[in-house]
């Protein structure tokens, strides 16, 4: 892994179209500005991890549990 030290307002350029700037540093929090072409997807890593874990939970559901959910839906339909 390449490790670079940057100070406030300094930047890093990646390839042809991506610039990352250090906009603010407060305690353990760093604000980064990222300029990149719109087809580059930029996501917080913890969101990806959360989706991954959520997907696994979604594949871990029995037809029986879904049956219970279905009943709630049916009940909702009747009364609403």
């Amino acid at each position: 892994m390449l490790i670079l030290s940057r100070k406030l307002n300094e930047e890093i350029v990646i390839g042809d179209g991506i610039t990352i700037s250090v906009l603010a540093i407060e305690g353990d929090k760093v604000s980064l500005g990222i300029d990149a072409p719109s087809d580059f997807k930029i996501l917080r890593k913890e969101l990806l991890d959360a989706v991954k874990s959520n997907n696994k939970q979604s594949a871990d559901i029995s037809a029986e549990q879904i049956g219970k959910l279905k009943n709630i839906f049916a009940d909702k339909g009747k009364k609403g």
Binding site: N54, N55, Q65, I72
Partner: peptide
């Protein structure tokens, strides 16, 4: 949207972020 059903089915959730 994917569905997650915890032990209490009425607390089921969907993932609208993905």
């Amino acid at each position: 949207t994917t569905v997650v059903v915890p032990a209490e089915p009425s607390k089921a959730t969907v993932n609208l972020a993905a």
